[in-house]
Amino acid sequence: MPEEGSQAKEKMIKIAIVGSPNVGKSVLFNALTKRYVTVSNYPGTTVEVSRGTAKIDSLKCEVIDTPGMYSLLPVTEEERVARRILIDERPNLVIHVVDAKNLERMLTLTLQLIEAGLSLILVLNIMDEAQREGVTIDARVLERELSIPVIKAVSTKAKGIDALKQGIKDYAERL
């Protein structure tokens, strides 16, 4: 253990990216990690889980890209694995990625994750398509209602990645 530096900066924080299928979790995961990614079957299942490390300035993070889940009450093997990761691996921070177009269907999981006592950042992804469909979202109001940080993003165009990194750093500093 290195002695110098504040504890928060030297500690490795564990981040889990969760969300339903097709909301851009993996794109976000790749944008955060870039290197050192391993993909392996979750023990005892045929479900694949990607893990990688990210370095945000001096903050080191282990990032887990979980299989798609709609709810904490699992129906599929994928959902079961995603929940097991949250329970067994105890991530410090959970990034919930949602499709901004279908916020109504997606927020249920956000509420469940908050209820589960997890530290959460909500990422409203695919904002471009939402805007094209005439959907406007007031992120500040959402932040107030949910009492968690909310970030708008278009992960395929690398929009919102910096804000997310800042959000992760802010979280680590509060630790």
Partner: peptide, 10 residues
């Protein structure tokens, strides 16, 4: 929550 934070243009 949605009614407070989201507006949809028809």
């Amino acid at each position: 929550i949605i009614s407070k934070a989201v507006t949809v243009k028809q």
